[in-house]
Design a protein around this nucleic acid. Sequence first.
DNA 1: TATGCCATGTAAAAAGTTACATGATTCC
DNA 2: GGAATCATGTAACTTTTTACATGGCATA
Lengths: 186, 186
Amino acid sequence: MSLSHALLGLLAIEPASGYELSKEFERDLGRYAWQAGHTSVYPELIRLAEQGLVEVTHEGARRSRTYAVTDKGREELREWLLSPWGQGVVRNEQVLRLFLLEALEPNETVTALRGVVEHAEGRMSELRALREKRDVEPPEGLDVLGQLASEYGLRQYQALRDWALWAIEHVNKRQGSTDSGSPRQP
Amino acid sequence: MSLSHALLGLLAIEPASGYELSKEFERDLGRYAWQAGHTSVYPELIRLAEQGLVEVTHEGARRSRTYAVTDKGREELREWLLSPWGQGVVRNEQVLRLFLLEALEPNETVTALRGVVEHAEGRMSELRALREKRDVEPPEGLDVLGQLASEYGLRQYQALRDWALWAIEHVNKRQGSTDSGSPRQP
DNA sequence: TATGCCATGTAAAAAGTTACATGATTCC
DNA sequence: GGAATCATGTAACTTTTTACATGGCATA
């Protein structure tokens, strides 16, 4: 199960509470890599602790418990990270939508693809803004993902936008000019 | 649930049997967008048929049943495809690994990133070869995904490769030269 | 006639989601 | 004192995976 590895990885980067880990799964990590709700995280932390892969290192205010990986956990994580690239779990609802867009009428496909372009560009400027802000106030807490993740996201959305633009051309070409909009705005 | 939409979408592109649909979930679709085993597909087709979203249009050899979307199913699909871009399910084991690479020692991180570059380049040439082959013998069967998907995949892997190269530089820079390999091979 | 792929399923177990629940601390 | 957020959990339900099972057709 990848949730356990995600937890081991996050805790290896920095010890954290279940609450903090859950937040991380809603931010960058959840957006690009792996989602998990707090109702999965807490029981899983308990299981990992039972297996000796993590341990509680600190109990703080509001009953909070800070976990850290043990040596055994770090070894397990290392093996997983260095294991050869197999097929792994892939599940992405938005990419699924992209792939099925062809089931629509061609002009609706193009409309949807234009939506993709806009969405991607919106996310790109968000990420750029975030990166600039990061240069001013350096990261804190469980934000170690920030630099690699935001760069990855930026390039990801760039590729998505370019692909969508290409796909619009492709669909139009295949179709003659059944297109609803104006062809190429200079 | 996205599995139902995936099935509606595939069947809207072209009627198919559960077997053919399952194969598609193991190819392009499973690699980039959504995985599903045949043990999920068959029961789901039955549920969709009960709801009147798909129907059996043909029974062929070896007890095979060809399904097609109904008008109701097509409408359901259309609504889903044209609905606004929300957060959707995201789960990608390999991307998760990328994000957690920092938990390794810096030189191991770089080693792993070099593996990513190689993997991405390998997949890219596979996809290019496939695309050239496609130009000779045109697609057949449930391969309508082929053109958009292979282009998407290509750009995806290109972005991944470029990101990994950038990340190697980034990690090295942050680290001084604790790197194990030779820096920049011309 | 045996091997391999086509083609479909069931049942149990594991994983993940949704709904519900509750106490602690801070900030207004 | 009340609202918001921190922080953790349980239980029921849904979805997915794993293991098992079986018959049909082609071809060597």
